[in-house]
Design a protein around this nucleic acid. Structure first.
Length: 177
DNA sequence: CCCTGATTCGC
DNA sequence: GCGAATCAGG
């Protein structure tokens, strides 16, 4: 994936908007967070406006590591097999997702159905990791679409609440809702 | 642990 | 120029 003008502009825009590198990477698609950061640096538009005054990097010199041409990179124990398949239509006709820097508010105070309706973190389709609830809210085609995003805490792909909804045992069913 | 940006350096 | 690996911090 090469950096076309469009992509670069998108990057600048998103970066200026204050989105994190990973979010930008996800939105652009085809690039990693690191790629974005690297590009940002090359474009010299780091710091994002704010003077990072307290930034006096330079600590370690991994030169030694570089010397080892052998694949001593070892391996990350964590499985990076996430399914970043967020294909939210990028077709020619289908317009890009565009986040529109919408106000991420909306805290509808539902009449509490039974237990407790946890508030979703209203995450865009980004920032979802192995531990964030992937329960979708709303219409995927809508701009309002978002994911719960709460911590899953060993409940699989969903948070505590949503995993119950998702895997209703048929027995515990009925009262819910 | 998860995430963030920052830096280095082989390609 | 690019970006993975790595570092450092929250």
């Amino acid at each position: 994936m090469n950096w076309t003008d469009e992509r670069v502009e998108m990057l600048k825009k998103l970066w200026a908007e204050g989105l994190s590198a990973s979010q930008i990477a996800a939105q652009l698609g085809g690039v990693s967070r690191n790629a974005v950061i690297g590009k940002v640096h090359r474009l010299k538009l780091s710091s994002r406006g704010r003077a990072t005054s307290s930034n006096t990097r330079q600590k370690k010199a991994p030169a030694a590591a570089a010397a080892s041409s052998t694949a001593s990179r070892s391996s990350r124990s964590t499985t990076r097999t996430q399914s970043r398949t967020v294909t939210t239509s990028v077709g020619a006709t289908a317009l890009q997702v565009e986040f529109q820097e919408d106000a991420i508010a909306y805290q509808d105070t539902r009449p509490v159905e039974d237990v407790v309706i946890p508030m979703s973190r209203k995450l865009k389709l980004v920032q979802l990791s192995e531990r964030t609830c992937k329960w979708p809210n709303g219409d995927p085609l809508s701009e309002e679409f978002n994911f719960c995003g709460n911590d899953t805490g060993d409940n699989g792909p969903y948070c505590c609440y949503h995993s119950k909804l998702a895997y209703q045992p048929a027995s515990e069913r009925r009262r819910a809702r």
